[in-house]
Amino acid sequence: MQIDKDLVAASATPLVLAILAEGESYGYAILRRVRELSNGELDWTDGMLYPLLHRLHRLGYVTTEWRTPPEGRRRRYYAVTDGGRAALAEHRRQWETVTRALRGIWRGGDLLSFAFGRA
């Protein structure tokens, strides 16, 4: 299944913020988590994550720090801020409203086809 580009773009911010809300992380690991969460169906172009992280940083939603873990290479780590958490909560409210509306109409449709299918 190919997910529509606009939908991928719209969900990118809440997804990244939610992943960072689980704990600080770095670019490559964030993308791995996105693939894992969507069973590989949300296919991002890897590079595009970084401009997004830039934007989140500029808006003050995340903080960044270059660090070298005991084993491994030097990486830029991102951590969510309180502002980021507030933005995430707002995103969440909006997405829940959208999915609720969609679920409502689709469940109704299913019931109808179910009823008519029986008849």
Binding site: Y26, G27, Y28, D46, G47, Y50, H54, R73, R74, R75, R76
Partner: peptide, 9 residues
């Protein structure tokens, strides 16, 4: 910095 980050990726 961006180049470095993309390279680690």
């Amino acid at each position: 910095r961006d180049v470095e980050e993309l390279e680690t990726h």
